[in-house]
Design a protein around this nucleic acid. Structure first.
Lengths: 186, 186
DNA sequence: ACCTGAACACCGTTCAAGT
DNA sequence: ACCTGAACACCGTTCAAGT
């Protein structure tokens, strides 16, 4: 059963969505592909490298271009953030995977690049645009990790606290975007 | 060699600071305490529960009260965020541990409670104060995780990108605080 | 180019039994 | 109350060898 690199990533995505990150093991991935675990090391040097490719694919499969290209910068930024949230929420532990890989520089670079570009086009200096883009993504990933932690707790029967959904996301995002707007009017 | 719960946590902190989270194993912790790994399960029901206590201790050992109690709300909020950053940076992977435990409701509640209280005292409604407190902590933990990822990469010899330190933290924090201030003047 | 088979050096957790 | 000893059911990774 011979496979390409892209087959391995696609199957890893399936497993992630169905059973989550702790059960996405090299042994299970091998079994579902019909090969020995060691065969995966022909396609990726390590599990981390595989997860980097998984992070890229999660972002690539998410929605894109939901804002008009001539809309104001803040509307475009809000739209891109909402897209990234949707992308990572589509797979169990997706936010965790993408955030971790991004922090280690191993995957999921696109949202950062996109946001930094939008913010610079909006009038921010290069350095401040980068800082603001990271601040936005720390919020987006942090919020999505919270949402998926709640979803998992609910799945396991613990229904302690109310779920924080899209409304709370919008409220938090509004805070960060307003803060960026305040920098622009300095 | 008999131990109390607090001894176990303290030794876990030592190991975390010296070798980081991946090497903080129940077997290594047992060995350093001079007991079998299974003995730790007398004090904690699981490794996650232990890490929750570790997260609490990381926060408890951090600085506190660095702002005057009669200072404006934004100054107090900035000070508390800087304290939390310092607390988690004091141990390898400290930000990861505290952020993860907080997301799962297993530890590190204090910073959230403190910030929500400060923001409510500053004039925000209860719900918005909570959303703002979470937004601040998503930034603080996200930034600190970045900083520790960079520090680890530098330790392993990869000196690719410049370290993001206190200056970049202040810049990002200013954005979020300004966004909260904008909500207050609505 | 892609995979097998077997091994190496580990994990967290459980549980009967000891003091 | 706290710990031992042994086991269970796993991990990621390496590497010589196969096709």
């Amino acid at each position: 059963m011979r496979h390409r690199r892209a087959d391995v990533v696609a199957r890893a995505l399936d497993i992630l969505g169905e059973v989550g990150l702790p059960d996405l093991t090299m042994r299970r991935l091998g079994a579902e592909l019909g090969v020995q675990p060691s065969a995966i090391y022909h396609h990726f040097p390590s599990k981390q490298a595989l997860l980097g490719a998984v992070a890229d694919e999660i972002i690539a499969r998410g929605p894109q271009g939901s804002a008009a290209p001539d809309a104001p910068w803040d509307e475009q930024v809000r739209a891109r953030c909402a897209e990234v949230r949707q992308a990572v929420l589509a797979y169990q532990d997706g936010a965790d995977v993408v955030a971790t890989m991004w922090a280690f520089g191993l995957g999921g670079q696109a949202p950062y690049d996109d946001l930094a570009k939008l913010l610079e086009a909006g009038g921010l200096g290069t350095e401040l645009a980068r800082t603001a883009a990271r601040t936005l993504l720390h919020f987006v990933y942090g919020h999505a990790i919270d949402e998926q932690a709640h979803a998992q707790a609910a799945r396991l029967g613990a229904i302690d606290s109310p779920p924080r959904g899209a409304g709370d996301f919008d409220a938090g995002l509004a805070i960060v975007v307003a803060g960026i707007a305040a920098e622009l009017s300095d």
